[in-house]
Design a protein around this nucleic acid. Structure first.
Length: 198
DNA sequence: GCGACAG
DNA sequence: ATCTTGTCGC
């Protein structure tokens, strides 16, 4: 046995990337939050150029280099990664969250704002309601309502964590807004870096 | 074959 | 992703 285990993360990282208007420049940010207080305890941001043009399904290859770069600059590694995009809910069952999980060895989950694959029934209107995201015969994720009456998010497993725990974590990370605090803080950081002031 | 398609 | 006005609501 090694460590506290993937189901009891103390720190969770949010990752996000922002692009300049012309698309020739990007900023990748990672914010590390204390899962209990939801406070940012560490962060890193790097600027660079996109490695590829955007192609649905190959999205990971575009943002991966910059995100790994940012992760390397953290003072200490987080217990888990919350990615802006999908994990298993991908045409080849291997989205950005899977790439990041495997490459870092850390547990990882994907939280997408829009679907890439799959069909689903509308979840209940209340926070916490969900319905399975199905692609073919496989359940590849869950459509989860994080706030009453708001558009649901698409949660899927990336690496070393089950779907049930992933959804519970996302709800814990989203007490007030549609998106988890991890992606919200990372989003603000990379946008600020792109704008200049840091 | 054609269209759709995370960010 | 980014570009965008006003509008509704706490």
């Amino acid at each position: 046995m090694v460590g506290p285990g993937p189901t009891a993360p103390t720190t969770v990282a949010g990752l996000d990337v922002a692009y300049a208007e012309d698309g020739d420049r990007l900023a990748a940010a990672v914010t590390v939050l204390d899962v209990r207080t939801l406070r940012v305890v560490d962060s890193a941001v790097v600027t660079g150029r996109p490695a590829f043009d955007y192609v649905p399904g190959l999205f990971a290859f575009r943002e991966l280099p910059a995100l790994l770069d940012a992760l390397d600059r953290l003072t200490n590694p987080p217990d888990l990664l919350v990615c802006d995009g999908h994990g298993l809910a991908h045409p080849r069952r291997f989205g950005l969250a899977c790439h990041l999980g495997v490459l870092t060895g850390l547990p990882a989950i994907g939280v997408g704002k829009t679907p890439l694959v799959g069909t689903w029934d509308p979840p209940g209107e209340r926070r916490g309601s969900w319905s399975p995201l199905v692609d073919g015969t496989e359940v590849v994720g869950r459509v989860l309502r994080t706030q009453d009456g708001v558009k649901p998010v698409f949660v899927s497993v990336g690496h070393r964590m089950g779907l049930e725990n992933a959804c519970a974590l996302v709800l814990a990370l989203a007490p007030s807004y549609r998106l988890p605090e991890t992606t919200r803080t990372a989003d603000r950081l990379c946008r600020a870096a792109l704008a200049g002031r840091t």
